[in-house]
Design a protein around this nucleic acid. Structure first.
Lengths: 190, 190
DNA sequence: TTGCTCCTCACGTCACGTGAGGTGGC
DNA sequence: TTGCTCCTCACGTCACGTGAGGTGGC
């Protein structure tokens, strides 16, 4: 049994946040003391735990209320929508970063981009010694060990959604044992 | 000379946005028609151009008002503060991404991270055939051709600010011609 | 006369923060 | 009695969006 400020402290929230959650019906204390104090039960605290989790995923309070009183299907749908929204938000902030960097140096010259594009990245990999085959292996390895990170990375290079899926499909094929060279069946060249 | 909706359309804004800018004094039309219509002069449009630019950098309207009536020093300071804030915002959104991914699969297992860390990245590069020397060349190349992107990239791997600067300093040294091997002064080995 | 654009309030939004004015518990 | 925590309004925030009710211009 907890009073409002104690529960707030437990989650690093303010008292007024919990007052607000009560007012919108997201988290109602299950009782009141004689003097009218809100009293939160362990079950209330457990609900608060859930709320806290979804807050950390950036859901709106309305969505949190929905997923707390719905089936798993709804939950997954809400989370996936949020995940897509986050991608868009992050991209928007990166564009703002670009504008700021342009303003701060170049002054509007835009000579060097802060973020690399596909060409720039390929150039760096090539300059550090990777062959086409090595790059293929690199994609395959990336896709196998961290598919989501691979997706994020490709997006960060400004590659279109279509091309991203093409690249990822291409990366999912078994890594070819070695470049096929009919003339030399012996040990791999290198 | 433009009416309010014409000016709005020119910048892809709504009429109510410009009404709001007038009400807070950010962009006052320099005249009114006989019927009381707001009339925006070319100078007003030029001011709007500035506002639009800073909006694209994500400045608050209060900050935009400040930089429009201040010296360059203030401008740079405001922009730099915003740039730092953006970094923090993007990191916060990435944390939300992480929470969502954990919720959606693993369910709370957290086996595969969505974002790679340093170890994961090194593992992928190594698996695709890069030696230690190659990786060094890769950093040097990255630093030389796109220093800001290098910084962003290292931060995205969750590397501490301290280590990021160490790595970047280390990447600024002239690329050693080749691994030093006193015994073989002839052509590079490979 | 008919659309179209314009005008001025005024209220809603999202997730709280900040008082103001007052009461209960150790 | 003194602090501390609690209570209930009510208003402010940020950058607009959305009516309501009314007028001017071709």
């Amino acid at each position: 049994m907890l009073t409002i400020s104690r529960l707030a402290r437990r989650f690093g929230l303010s008292r007024s946040t919990l007052l607000y959650y009560d007012s919108i019906g997201l988290l109602r204390p299950s009782g009141r003391s004689e003097a009218g104090y809100r009293i939160y039960s362990p079950q209330d605290a457990a609900r608060m735990e859930q709320i806290d989790l979804y807050r950390k995923a950036g859901l709106t309070l309305a969505d949190i209320a929905r997923v707390l009183s719905a089936d798993r299907g709804t939950l997954a749908a809400v989370l996936e929508t949020r995940l897509r929204g986050l991608g868009a938000q992050i991209q928007a902030l990166r564009r703002q970063q670009q504008v700021l960097v342009d303003l701060l140096r170049g002054k509007n010259a835009r000579r060097r981009a802060r973020s690399l594009d596909k060409q720039g990245w390929v150039a760096i990999l090539r300059a550090s010694g990777l062959s086409e085959d090595d790059m293929r292996r690199w994609h395959v390895e990336f896709e196998a060990s961290a598919p989501e990170a691979h997706q994020d990375f490709l997006e960060s290079l400004g590659i279109s959604a279509d091309e991203v899926s093409r690249i990822r499909r291409w990366s999912q094929q078994r890594p070819k044992p070695r470049p096929i060279r009919r003339t030399s069946p012996g040990r791999p060249n290198r």
